[in-house]
Amino acid sequence: MRNPSPTLDGPCCGGPYLLTPGHARCEMCGKDYRFTEFPAFRAQRVVTKPRELADTGDATCFFHAQNQAETVCTGCGRFLCTVCAVDFGGRILCPSCIATGKTSPARADREKWMPEGIALLLATLPLLLWPFTLLTAPVALALVIWNWNKPAGLVRRFRWQRWVAAVFSLAQLAGWTWLFVAMFSR
């Protein structure tokens, strides 16, 4: 299969684009773009066609009963045709294994909650209604301690939020302790 007329799904209004070397112009809105294209833009598109069953004794694809199985999913062991076999980082996986995250988690993560960010919010936001800090400060401190050694995200960077959250929650806990001691010592 060939891809002789590359279509450009542009960012503005979706109109056709007039392409000149290094430049693209949307023909609908007239917006100009600097256009840096790469070989994939005009590359041949490879289409994999599955083999149909030649004999009724052949193993069939788990997802397509009419297709001959040609490989096995390394995640779940299902028979797969060439359409369903996805080469995922050197492993052959079926779509359901990819969807359920049997790949390397780091490569499949789409989003991640940041416990130190939540801890920072818990440590600072309730200061507006300070009685709530009796509840939120221990939770924030627990979140900070619990996640101290865990990787904070896919990329490594300095996580200042955990330090600020720890300092604020400790200060609030110290304040509450002082308040209780002062109350009960009377």
């Binding site: 980082g89 990819i98 896919l154």
Partner: peptide, 12 residues
């Protein structure tokens, strides 16, 4: 894009 990449890399 899912095809490319190293297998079993826990942390890129």
């Amino acid at each position: 894009g899912a095809r490319a990449g190293a297998a079993g890399v826990a942390q890129q």
